[in-house]
Structures are given as structure tokens and as C-alpha cells.
Nucleic acid binder design. Structure first.
Length: 415
RNA sequence: GUGACCAUAGUUCAGUCGGUUAGAACGCCAGGUUGUGGCCCUGGAGGUCGAGGGUUCGAGUCCCUCUGGUCACCCCA
């Protein structure tokens, strides 16, 4: 085979696109119920947009972006996530001037050059939402409920919701100093990964999977206990709103999101059947980002959810979706019948009836087999007799019974 | 980027100690039915054994390199 899809990318074959349509419809339905409206942005943007918003030092920006220079020598990047593009569009089109609160959603491919593994691809699909213009903790909660409702509607109820607060520009630097001081005491005993994290992103040491790191940092102070006068009540209100809605969650004081722009609320929805990459969705508040991108200070919250990971959960839990099948299969016995069958198929299709017929000059037996395989609901066999008399037999493939039909009114007979 | 495991028909997999013509199941095609599917029976097509190199009288099998896949680390959806 000469050509293959690029490492970490894959084809979505007909056997699975039916499920995708179903899930996408569910996402769009839920977004409209929550009053989020779709925005479609280009899949590539100026590299600096992502570098600025996601964070110059993050893994995504330093080693995972698909970046290239176009013919005009401008540095462009395939979007590694959705928020930066949405905010750019929000600012460029002055959406904030049209209403005080803007609720947007997106659904589309993202690109990151990572080593593929279960639940991780180089081109992957995310759906997500952004609510721009309010600092209400209720919107933080809405961002958690929204994906949870999408999942619930698909029959997935056993997700886990983890919650944390990562503070703001006031309390985070203060806490960071405290944390670094603590970590320095045990620095030499930490895993090599965590020693590197200590200088790059000390908060992430707490999120280490290494058992020894976990033990060593067991008593280290957590940011949730060092929030400022603004962040603490916000965090509490998020929790009480969740409690009021009877949504179960757990506080994970060690959870850190990988993107620099988060402030206050950070959350993650996981599912046990996912393996190592177990996050179905993640999100949080980013009150500083819009100003950072050149807009006026505007609070905002958002989430992003992985489509492929959702598919894995659905498949592991055997949620199968019936694939579309023809209403009628027209089997033809000879050349004149074939030509009539094709014309009739086109005619019925114009009326919105799904019809298939034979294009391979196959035997009747082969055509019947084909109709059966396609799960066609009805079959009409056309031969010279039928063409002469203008009537035929409508066979119900499920029951095997036949009844007479007028060939001039197949549409009527099919109801 | 690091590591482990894997690569044989369309698919899932057998293939003994290195030995002759590489097999099965499912799928596909055809026949068993002068014009009727599924179940069953019979037959058929389909393979550069991932690629390249090496060892050997002889390699699907052993060695090396590469490519790809899977899973984990890292990171994240």
C-alpha cells in the first residue's frame, strides 16, 4: 500500500459515522436547549494567538503544535484547542458589543502532535462551549452540567466529576511561593519528572502519578486552602450550586489543568472505561484571557470534550445505533426492467423515499441477498410480466409476505 | 520525546525444532431453486507472510535496520 493516513489520524468509516451523527445531533440538541449558539472558526490561526492564550511554556505550545510557514512566510498553526479561536472571533467581530453575555459552542477537529495511544490522536474532535461576559459561579456549574447532560442523554451515567479552584492572579502567586518552598525541601527525593515540573509548573508536581511523589507531597498545602477573599466564596458557591442540583462531585485539590489561562474553577469529567487517558471533558474559568488577547476585561468560562473518547465509552458500553437502510429495493430481471427500475428509483428518491437497485447486472438471487444485507424493508421484483401488466408484488422482507401493488403508485403503497 | 509489546487473506487468528504447494473461521463471489433473501450444503476468488538487508543448503519462523500499530510514561479531550 503506497499511501496511508498520517500517524495518529484515522478514517471514520461508514460503520461508525452513523454513531457519530447520532452523537453530534445529541450535542447540538443539548447546546440549543442550554441556549448556546454554534460558531465555526478556521482550523488554523496565527501561531502567536495560541502561544499567547494557551501559554508559551505549556507542553501544547512548546512541543505539540502543528506549526508551519505559509508561502507569505507567516507562521500559522493548526488549532490545538478551541477556546483561543473562539475568543479571537468574539473580539474580531465585536460580539461582546451586541449583548452583555455571549454563549457559544463549537464542534470540530483539533490537532496536536503527540504520540498516539488509547484515547489520543493527532487529529481529534472536540465539542465545547464558552460563556463570555459573566463571573457568576452558576455559569461554571452550567459548564459542568452541559456535557453531563449530553452523556446522560446517551445513556452514560457513571461519569465522575472532579472539581478544584486554581485561584487567581492575587492568590495563585502567593500560594506558588509557599508551594515551591515546601517542594524544595523534598526536591531531591522527587521523581525526575517532578523535579523538572518544580521549575516549569510547580502546581503539577501535585498531580504526579508517581507513587513516591504522592507520598512525599501528601502533606503539602493545597491551593484550595489558600484562596483569596474573592476566589474562596466563588469556589464555595460553585459547590453549593452543585449540591442544590444533586450533582455528585469530588474536590480534587491536586488537579491542575494544562492550559495556563485558567483562573478559579477547574474541573474534569472522567470515565472508568477509558484507560489511561480517562478525561472525557475538562474546563474552567478564564477571567483574564480576553484582556490578555487585547479585549477589555471580561470574565468567561468554558469546557471542551473529546468526541473519540466519548465514542470509546459508548462502544465499550454497547450503545449501538441502527444504521440507515433503504425503504425499498427494486430488483430487476432484464435490461428493460433495469432501466425502468433505475428511473423509478430516482423518481421515488425525489419524493424522499430511500431506494436502492442493482447496478451490477446480478442474478435475482444476488439482488435478494443484497436487499437482505442492506436491511431493505421492501422488495419489488421487476420483469417483463410486471412491465406489461403494470402491477407487481411488494414483498415485506421482515415477514416474507407479499401483496399486490400498482407500479405507478409505489410511493402510495409504501405509505 | 522515552519505553514495552506486536505486524500472516477483506476481518479475527493458527502456522510445531528453521524444511516441500502458507491454513481455519467469518466475510465476499457463484451454484444447489426456469423469477425470491436469511438457515443449510457444494465450489471459487483472495497472500510480495509490513518493507529492506543479513545468517543458512533452505526463513512466515533466527538476527539487524526502517515503517506502521497497540499500550504505558509525559501531557491532555
Amino acid at each position: 500500500m503506497k499511501y496511508r493516513s498520517i500517524k495518529g489520524t484515522k478514517d471514520l468509516l461508514p460503520a461508525e459515522t452513523g454513531l457519530w451523527h447520532h452523537v453530534e445531533a445529541d450535542v447540538r440538541y443539548m447546546m440549543s436547549v442550554f441556549n448556546y449558539r454554534e460558531i465555526r472558526t478556521p482550523v488554523f490561526e496565527a501561531t502567536s494567538l495560541f502561544a499567547r492564550s494557551i501559554g508559551e511554556l505549556t507542553d501544547i505550545v512548546t512541543k505539540e503544535m502543528y506549526t508551519f510557514n505559509d508561502r507569505g512566510d507567516e507562521s500559522l498553526t493548526l488549532r490545538p484547542e478551541g477556546t483561543a479561536s473562539v475568543l479571537r472571533a468574539y473580539l474580531q467581530n465585536n460580539l461582546g458589543e451586541q449583548a452583555p453575555l455571549t454563549k457559544l459552542y463549537y464542534l470540530g477537529p483539533m490537532f496536536r502532535q503527540e504520540r498516539p495511544q488509547a484515547g489520543r490522536l493527532r487529529q481529534f474532535y472536540q465539542f465545547g462551549a464558552e460563556a463570555i461576559g459573566s463571573s457568576s459561579p452558576l455559569l461554571d456549574v452550567e459548564m459542568m452540567i452541559l456535557p453531563l447532560e449530553v452523556y446522560r442523554n446517551l445513556g452514560i451515567n457513571d461519569t465522575k466529576l472532579a472539581l478544584n479552584s486554581v485561584g487567581c492572579e492575587k492568590c495563585r502567586p502567593r500560594y506558588k511561593k509557599l508551594l515551591i518552598a515546601e517542594l524544595k525541601k523534598i526536591q531531591k527525593s522527587l521523581s525526575p519528572d517532578s523535579q523538572a515540573r518544580l521549575s516549569q509548573n510547580p502546581l503539577r508536581v501535585l498531580d504526579s502519578k508517581d507513587e513516591r511523589d504522592r507520598k512525599l507531597t501528601a502533606d503539602v498545602p493545597l491551593i484550595k486552602d489558600h484562596l483569596c477573599e474573592e476566589c474562596r466564596p466563588h469556589f464555595e458557591e460553585v459547590q453549593s450550586a452543585l449540591n442544590a442540583l444533586n450533582i455528585s462531585f469530588h474536590i480534587d485539590g491536586r488537579m491542575v489543568r494544562g492550559l495556563d489561562y485558567y483562573t478559579k474553577t477547574a474541573f474534569e469529567i472522567t470515565h472508568q472505561s477509558l484507560g489511561s487517558q480517562d478525561a472525557l471533558a475538562g474546563g474552567g474559568r478564564y477571567d483574564l484571557l480576553i484582556q490578555e488577547l487585547g479585549g477589555k476585561a471580561t470574565p468567561a468560562v468554558g469546557f471542551a470534550a473529546g468526541m473519540e473518547r466519548l465514542m470509546i465509552v459508548l462502544e465499550k458500553n454497547k450503545r449501538e445505533i441502527a444504521s440507515p437502510s433503504p425503504k425499498l429495493y427494486l430488483a430487476a430481471l432484464d435490461e428493460p426492467s433495469r432501466s425502468w427500475a433505475f428511473r423509478t428509483a430516482v423518481d421515488l428518491r425525489k419524493k424522499g423515499i430511500a431506494v436502492e437497485t442493482d447496478y451490477l447486472d446480478r442474478s435475482l438471487k444476488a439482488q435478494m441477498r443484497d436487499a437482505n444485507r442492506l436491511a431493505a424493508e421492501y422488495v419489488v421484483v421487476i420483469g417483463s410480466e410486471e412491465l406489461k401488466s403494470g402491477s407487481g408484488k411488494l414483498k415485506n422482507m421482515r415477514s416474507g409476505t407479499e401483496r399486490p401493488v400498482s407500479l405507478s403508485d409505489l410511493a402510495g403503497a409504501l405509505g
